[in-house]
């Protein structure tokens, strides 16, 4: 199963709807970078509302894809991280320090516009 990536103006929208296994996560990394390249998108919103846990592997893949996107000129905003996920990430010791976050997709797009506008 591949994670669908939607295009909205100059942004890409990704909503992860099911539990990520390692392969899907890596595939997603690949797909997203290609899509950014293809569309010259300036921003990406990744929505994690449906994800109920993130371990260090998936956190690393996410962190990596954010940095890689940045290198390609696209800002990434992560949205919808659930309380339980936030707590486990912090306790694991993964702060995702420089990552932009927002409460939900709508706020995420707002934040992206803000960042891109400045």
């Amino acid at each position: 199963m591949r994670i669908p990536i939607l295009k909205l103006n100059d942004c890409l929208l990704v909503s992860i709807q099911w539990e990520l296994d390692d392969q899907t996560a890596l595939q997603f990394q690949e797909d997203l970078l290609h899509k950014i390249h293809e569309t010259s998108a300036n921003g990406v919103v990744i929505d994690l509302t449906s994800i109920d846990f993130i371990d260090s592997f998936i956190a690393k893949v996410l962190g990596d894809v954010i940095n890689m996107s940045k290198l390609m000129g696209a800002i990434v905003v992560i949205t919808g991280i659930q309380p339980a996920v936030a707590i486990t990430l912090i306790e694991l010791g993964i702060g995702l320090d420089d990552v932009l976050t927002a409460l939900d997709l709508e706020k995420g797009l707002e934040k992206l516009q803000q960042e891109l506008g400045e």
Binding site: I78, I81, V99
Partner: peptide, 12 residues
């Protein structure tokens, strides 16, 4: 500090 960090992760 942990709580503040987690709050940042959920987007607030």
């Amino acid at each position: 500090i942990q709580a503040a960090d987690a709050v940042r992760l959920i987007g607030a």
